[in-house]
Each structure stands twice: as C-alpha cells, then as structure tokens.
Amino acid sequence: MLEIKDLYAGIDGKEILRGLTLSVQPGEVHAIMGPNGSGKSTLANVLAGRPRYEVTSGEVLFEGKNLLDMPTEERAREGVFLAMQYPVEIAGVNNIYFLKAALNAVRKHRGDEELDALEFLQLAREKMKLVELDEAFMNRGVNEGFSGGEKKRNEIFQMAVLDPKLAILDETDSGLDIDALRIVAEGVNALRSEAHSVLVITHYQRLLRYLVPDFVHVLANGRIVKSGGKELAEELEQKGYDWVETAEVA
C-alpha cells in the first residue's frame, strides 16, 4: 500500500525528516508516536502534499505509484485521506455540498458514476450516524462555528464518506474528551478492513486503547528509532519518550 524509503523533507528550508523508512501493507493500522518536534505532522503533511513542504530526497510509493509526483488533489482522488490536526473553516460553503463535490471528484477519478443529490444524501445520513453528528451540521458552512470536537468528528465523517484506501489521522485525538475520543475511534474502526490502511499519528497512547494498532513506531529527530507491536505504546506511556531517545544514542 505505502512504501516510504529514506525520506528527507522539511519546511522553509529546515530539514525535519531525516531518512524515514516505513512500509504499510493493506489492512494494517500503524501508529506513529513521538515527542513534539519529532516530525510526526511533517510526515502527514508531506504525504498529503501540503504546499511549502519540500522533499529533498527519498521516495514514496502508493500502490506502486510515485506519490510525490502527484498534485495534492490527485493524491486525494487516489485514496489518500488526511484527517487534519486543525481543520479549517470555509464560511459560506455548505458542508454537505462540499463533501458531495469531493466524493464525486473522487468517484469520477476512479471511473465510477457520480452520485446524484438523493443517493448522496442517503450515504451521508448513514455515515453521519457513525460519528453521532446531528444533521443540522450538514447545512452549515464547512466547519463554520464547529467546536473542536465537532470539527474532528466532521473529519472522520468525511473520511467515512470518501472511503479512502489510506487514512492518515494527524493528532485527531488532541483536544477531544473521552466520549469524542471513543466516537472517533469507532468511526475509524468501522473503516478497518483488508483493503484499508490507517496511519495514526499521536502524541499520547489514549486513542490507541480504542483504536488498537498492529504496529507502533517511535519517531525521533526525523526518523523511526523503534518499532514494535501495540505493547510498545504502553511501554512508552510508562517510561516516556526520553527512554527511546536515550536508547537511540546508546
């Protein structure tokens, strides 16, 4: 699904990722953990193709295709979804209209028929239940006036509708209370299947209680310094990040 080989990347001339290598197979859930400034969000943004992030060397293959060559929207249409850490508000653009345009752009790219308003609404209603979002949200502007938790749930709702092959969750758990955390995790769990992969980027272990990863990687200074199973997350929670950073030096 996703092959990252020896990736060097940064922003505004500052190198942040320094030789990151990672392989994600279909159906797997990988957690990327690490202290602040270790490059977690940079990784998410580089994969999604955010402007200003520059790749200096290395390679990223998505289903065998060179992901870094694709413009942002094409990556999305190919099935890469980024649930953002800070979802923006787009005033005046109806939430449901926005999502319908997105889904149809993706479907068109895949060669599927575009959905009409009725079919789309049916699908949206079904997915909305998943994240326990009220229908009233759909007719507001994109994220306009949403609380922090509502924004994050809206991200998961969009993900559920767009049905991406690879979902990247960038600190989706930050700022969520325990109920919202559970809802978000359930939303992601519903997507889990042999065809879907998930990359969970997080600082804390708490989301991983609900969303159990197959693999956990620790990122420090722009590269993966330790990989393991779900028990690694618990170990980190107990010992703190100093433990791996020291381990790396030693």
């Binding site: 999604a48 193709g49 955010r50 402007p51 413009p71 942002t72 929207e73 990556r75 999305a76 249409r77 979804f81 980024l82 953002m84 979802p87 923006v88 787009i90 926005f98 999502l99 345009a101 997105a102 889904l103 752009a105 993706v106 790219h109 994109v142 969009q158 767009l162």
Partner: peptide, 8 residues
C-alpha cells in the same frame, strides 16, 4: 489545501 486534500 483542505479542499484539494478532499479531491476538489
């Protein structure tokens, strides 16, 4: 970027 990341 947000719109493009959704495929628009």
């Amino acid at each position: 970027f947000y719109a493009q990341q959704r495929g628009i």
